[in-house]
Design a protein around this nucleic acid. Structure first.
Length: 878
RNA sequence: GCGCCAGUGGCGGAAUUGGUAGACGCGCUGGAUUUAGGUUCCAGUACCGCAAGGUGUGGGGGUUCAAUUCCCUCCUGGCGCACCA
């Protein structure tokens, strides 16, 4: 055995060993219990970043741990290969997206291999491959036939200079990021999947997901947003012949407040808004038109719309209250979204804070119709009263509670045929059309005679041409490629045009987990393996995917289930959402106030003699720099750490260990170069402890003895006890809690104890060997290379990856004495040692007679003594 | 704006079911080894205080014999908001 730890040598040796034996190839037909562990596949952006390393290390640790539990583990890897960055790179570097993507995949695959992840590489997939996306096109056609697909107009960000559609990300401060032009909203026809048909199932089945983080469940519930209410109709007063609507439909969850409605608010894009704007413009009043035009300059993102200052314009139109026949004004308001419900709401300023603020701003009437049941005063001139209560000023409904009134008013509206109960969801249908090149073509053909027709199944896949040229505008090259879009109609064979839009890339990532089970199947989307191997047992990925990706995947899974492709209801049994990787930021402020970020490796930090940071300076010019917050590693903050540099310097095991040790997986992880070196130091220590053991005269005899059979002295028993306590804790931390940081800390404690153990006889060395064996097995999922090398060194015949997780020896755990804490009035005053399971009365007496305690209870009356066996005694005095 | 989450030493974090706050690591201080730097080893390290002791888990309030943990409220930070992935 080498005396010194040399990561590069042992890591390469271990990886070669695993490769040559195909150790991580999964046998899907095995009789063993299956475990499918999946980390969210990466977008191939160029190189691995630290977030990837964290994601895949967590997945690998879980996979290797489950393998040690005797399970047949599947851990695949692939590439979410379509997306916007490839098009940006194409424009910037004049290289086709396919080629750029392929190069990046090769680079990142090499990096993943260097980290020693136990992937079954034979199952690798890339979503940009026609053999992959053809099945997505195929499913889309099945959904089309079932009526789960439809086309409607919807809004996009339009860049009037580049004449292209922009993603929300490409609109900065209302301007296109390339052209700098003010963007406009534009309505274009797009394809939608009816996810709202599955809203109820997506909501109800969340109850099945008992092993998902509760915050993700909560976020999804809210996103789906089921609410029960009443849909009702306001008739437009005296509509002219050209008026686009005779009525305004609204949905409310508070029909009990119906008598408090003082106006109706509609979205700027509502047909009645547009109609009223045209009418008033004809009379030389352009206020409404200007308001609508201004709103059209706001980007499509909801966050942008919701943060606008509430504003509106009276349309001049009037509607009739369905119960009171009052005439109410109709206002166009920027807080009403056309994409929600009907694009109109009834406003009750007295009982809704947003309506109240709007009414205050425009001096609209505020009419209280609910009072609190506890008769507390309500002042509608100060704020809205939004709670439920009892009805007032509500005709025959006056006196009812809000709950009673809900039912009564709903029934009354139904009888009058101007409303009915309705369950509404916040969830909107999924728009899957993208006006972009680098995505899966939507398999639709437009025929002048037959309309929109799906591509015939035998003509799939619709291949995306890869030899393309981009111009600086970012427009999709497909629109300029007649060889792509010119085709014939599958129904009537006449000349027809292909759809040039491509799918949202969430389509590919919504079902890849199923494709890993039969990645090369040319006959079907998924096969028998999917029945046996789904759901995924453990899914690992960033919390940023809590709603969109994880909701779309759940939806897709149900679509596939209803197509008979999979048999379970949910795709992911257990979910772990890892936190971000953050790092310190340093900057200087330019004259303009703009921050010029400086990379942490160029900064030197000055500390006082307690280690507290005093200041920082630039290594090059020795001038001071400002210390910013810890932020997510990014190019813009110049605080990224290249994992490859760290791996080259310290080895994969050190990087893996640091990442798993520095924080529990759900929390954000702060990068720290010194702590990384600390992790490296620990591995060197592990190596040295094993080396010392191999140098012992008892090294060989040890291999034939088990600690259990020997007669041990107290010190040896203590180490054995610590070993098995550590194993028990680490097993729980890794298997159940997924708190790998505390499992590692426990092993560090154990090895600290090993360092202090005297090693003078066979028994000493045998208990040390047991501690080393168990430590190595606990660590092996985290640092598999060093574990592989040292496990062999310790004389074990099998490989560490095939070793079973060790079994706790319960008899070794028992310890005779235990320390009891003594509190007086809840404050810790002293501690004493007693035999385990000492009776409560004895503990009480020992505590009361304790010398230290007596000082605190002298001249006071003991009111109560609380005894928690084997833990503490609390004496309450007054 | 709406939804979700988190605030504990100089730093990352631990305390799993309401029961001894600060495990483990980093940093820092002192010492040993070394020609030196580095490495390695030993000791110390929440704050105030000479000590006795007191204070302390973002702020304020509450429940309890006992609160980092439960409740209310406020503040700060992060994530998501449907075309970044």
């Amino acid at each position: 055995m080498q005396e010194n730890y040399s990561p590069s040598t042992i890591e390469q040796a271990a990886q070669t060993f695993w490769d040559q034996r195909n150790c991580f190839k999964t046998d899907l037909d095995s009789d063993q219990e299956k475990f499918y562990c999946l980390a969210m596949f990466p977008y191939p952006s160029g190189k691995l970043h630290m977030g990837h390393v964290r994601n895949y290390t967590i997945g690998d640790v879980i996979s290797r741990y489950q393998r040690m539990q005797g399970k047949q583990v599947l851990q695949p890897m692939g590439w979410d290969a379509f997306g916007l960055p490839a098009e940006n790179a194409a424009i910037k570097h004049n290289i086709p997206p396919a080629q750029w993507t392929k190069t990046n995949i090769a680079e990142m695959r090499t990096q993943l291999k260097r980290l020693g992840f136990a992937y079954d590489w034979e199952r690798e997939i890339a979503t940009c491959h026609p053999d992959y996306y053809r099945w997505e096109q195929w499913l889309f056609i099945q959904l089309y036939k079932k009526g789960l697909v439809y086309r409607k107009n919807s809004e996009v960000n339009w860049d009037p200079i580049d004449k292209t559609v922009l993603a929300n990300e490409q609109v900065i401060d209302g301007r296109g990021w390339r052209s700098g032009a003010l963007v406009e909203r534009r309505q274009i026809p797009q394809w939608f999947l009816k996810i709202t048909d599955y809203a109820e199932q997506l909501l109800n089945d969340l109850d099945q997901l008992t092993e998902w983080p509760s915050e993700v469940i909560r976020m999804q519930k809210h996103w789906i947003g089921r609410s029960e209410g009443v849909e009702l109709t306001f008739a437009v007063q005296g509509p002219q012949a050209d008026c686009p609507a005779q009525t305004v439909e609204v949905f409310t969850t508070r029909p009990d407040t119906l008598f408090g409605v003082t106006y109706v608010a509609i979205a700027p894009q509502h047909p009645l808004s547009l109609y009223a704007a045209k009418k008033s413009a004809a009379k030389n009043n352009s206020t409404l038109q200007e308001f609508i035009t201004a709103f059209e300059k706001v980007k499509v993102a909801e966050a942008d719309m919701a943060t606008l200052e509430k504003a509106g314009v009276d349309t001049g139109l009037r509607v009739i209250h369905p119960l009171t026949q009052e005439i109410l004004p109709v206002w166009t308001a920027n807080f009403v979204l056309m994409s929600y419900g009907s694009g109109a709401v009834m406003s009750v300023p007295a009982h809704d804070q947003r309506d109240w603020e709007f009414a205050q701003k425009y001096q609209l009437p505020i009419k209280q119709v609910i009072e609190p049941t506890n008769e507390a005063p309500v002042d509608s001139t100060q704020a809205a009263f939004t709670e439920k209560g009892q009805l007032i000023h509500s005709a025959e409904f006056t006196g009812l509670t809000s709950v009673e009134a809900f039912a009564a008013i709903a029934q009354h509206l139904a009888e009058k045929k101007c409303g009915q109960r309705k369950v509404q969801y916040r969830l909107r249908d999924w728009g899957v059309s993208r006006q972009r090149y680098w995505g899966a073509p939507i398999p639709i053909i437009y025929c002048d005679t037959c309309g929109a027709v799906p591509v015939a199944e035998q003509d799939l896949p619709v291949r995306l041409p890869t030899d393309v040229k981009f111009d600086a505008s970012g427009c999709s090259p497909l629109k300029q490629m007649p060889e792509f879009y010119q085709t014939t109609c599958p129904c009537c064979a006449k000349p027809a045009t292909r759809e040039t839009d491509t799918f949202d890339t969430f389509m590919e990532s919504s079902w890849y987990y199923a494709r890993y089970l039969s990645p090369r199947d040319t006959q079907q989307m998924t096969g028998e393996n999917a029945q046996k191997w789904l759901p995924v047992n453990q899914y690992v990925g960033g919390i940023e995917h809590a709603v969109l990706h994880l909701l779309y995947s759940r939806f897709f899974h149900k679509l596939m289930r209803d197509e008979g492709l999979v048999h379970c209801d949910e795709p992911f049994q257990k979910l772990l959402c890892q936190g971000m990787v953050i790092a310190e930021t340093f900057y200087r402020e330019e004259a303009s106030g703009k921050k010029d970020y400086i990379a942490p490796q160029d900064v030197e930090i000055l500390r006082d003699d307690k280690g507290q940071i005093l200041s920082a300076k630039h290594k090059k010019d020795q001038q001071p720099v400002l210390i910013g917050n810890n932020e997510k590693m990014s190019k813009s903050k110049n605080n990224g750490v290249d994992p490859q540099i760290m791996i080259d310097k310290f080895g994969a095991d050190t990087v893996r260990l640091f990442i798993m040790f520095a924080a529990p997986p759900e929390q954000s992880l702060q990068w720290n170069d010194s702590a990384l070196e600390g992790a490296h130091r620990f591995l060197k220590r592990v190596w040295r402890l094993v080396y010392q053991h191999t140098q012992s005269e008892y090294f060989i005899p040890c291999q034939k003895k088990s600690a259990k059979e020997l007669t041990l002295d107290n010190r040896q028993k203590e180490l054995r006890s610590k070993t098995h306590q550590t194993l028990k804790k680490a097993g729980d931390d890794m298997g159940r809690r997924c708190t790998f940081n505390t499992a590692i800390a426990a092993v560090m404690e154990l090895l600290n104890a090993v360092s202090q153990q005297s090693r003078l006889c066979l028994e000493d060395e045998v208990v040390v060997k047991e501690a080393l064996d168990i430590s190595l097995l606990i660590l092996s999922p985290i640092v598999p290379h060093i574990a592989h090398a040292l496990w062999q060194t310790l004389g074990h015949a099998e490989n560490s990856i095939d070793a079973r997780w060790p079994i706790v020896d319960e008899t070794a755990l028992v310890s005779g004495q235990i320390e009891i804490a003594v509190q007086v009035n809840g404050k810790l005053r002293t501690r004493f040692w007693v035999d385990t399971n000492t009776e409560q009365k004895t503990l009480e007496a020992l505590a009361l007679n304790n010398e230290t305690v007596s000082r605190f209870i002298a001249e006071k009356t003991v009111r109560k003594v609380i005894v928690v066996p084997n833990k503490l005694v609390n004496i309450v005095v007054a």
